[in-house]
Computed example of a mutant assay.
Amino acid sequence: MKEFSAISVIGLADALIHWQIFFVLRTAVGLDQAASNFAAFCVAAAFSFYVNALYTFERETSVFLYLMFIAVMGAISYGVGVMADIWRLPGLVTVVSFSLLNLLLGYGFFRFVLFRNNPA
């Protein structure tokens, strides 16, 4: 239960960071949704990885696996932004859609790949 609670709180913080950066880049800087979503994901993912490694899973992991996670989820975040730009969707739809994908795919990757229990 500790793991689920910690992941939930960190996931909420991750989403808040992502949304804030997305909307700042979108409105104040004027970037498109694809670039804004990708940049926001990268910052929020770095936060989540660091905090999860320290407090939730309390162990080290492979840098290669982390970079693989960033590459795959970064491509998905960019793709969601591209689709939102093409369909001229509001930014709120973009961040909600990606946040749901990130929650499901990110948790699965963190739990079952990046921080899986390695028998010694």
Rank of each mutant, 00 (worst) to 15 (best):
M73W: 05
A13C: 14
M73A: 10
F115A: 02
F22M: 11
I21H: 10
V96P: 06
T56H: 11
R111S: 13
F115D: 03
L16A: 14
C42M: 15
S36R: 00
L89V: 08
Y78S: 04
R88M: 08
G74F: 06
N102W: 06
L25D: 09
I7L: 09
L12E: 00
R59C: 06
G79F: 07
L101A: 10
G91I: 01
V82H: 04
T27Q: 13
L100F: 13
D14R: 14
F41H: 09
F23H: 08
F69N: 07
Y50L: 06
L92Y: 08
I70C: 08
R111K: 15
F98A: 06
L105E: 08
F110H: 15
A53P: 00
F22K: 09
F115I: 04
A120M: 09
L67H: 00
A15R: 07
A40H: 11
M73S: 11
D85S: 07
V96Y: 10
L31C: 08
L105V: 13
N37W: 01
A84H: 09
R59Q: 14
K2T: 05
W87V: 00
P119T: 14
F64V: 05
M83Y: 15
S97A: 13
S36K: 04
G30W: 03
T94R: 03
F23E: 04
L12N: 03
S36Y: 03
W87R: 02
A34W: 02
V96W: 08
F109C: 04
A28M: 12
R116C: 00
F109K: 10
G11M: 09
I70D: 01
A84T: 07
D85H: 04
D14Q: 14
L103C: 12
G11S: 13
G108Y: 05
G81Y: 00
I21V: 15
Y107I: 02
Y107N: 11
N117I: 11
R116K: 15
I76P: 07
L92D: 11
V80P: 09
S99M: 02
Y50M: 04
N52T: 07
F41Q: 07
S97W: 06
K2Q: 11
A120F: 13
F4T: 11
A34L: 06
L54P: 00
N37L: 03
E3R: 14
Y55Q: 02
E3W: 08
V82P: 01
F38G: 07
T27S: 14
D14F: 01
Y107E: 04
V113A: 15
L100G: 08
F57I: 07
Q20C: 10
E58V: 06
I17L: 15
A71L: 14
I76M: 10
N52R: 07
F49K: 04
M68W: 12
Q20P: 01
L105I: 13
F57C: 09
I17M: 13
T94W: 06
G106F: 04
Q33A: 11
Y50F: 14
S97D: 09
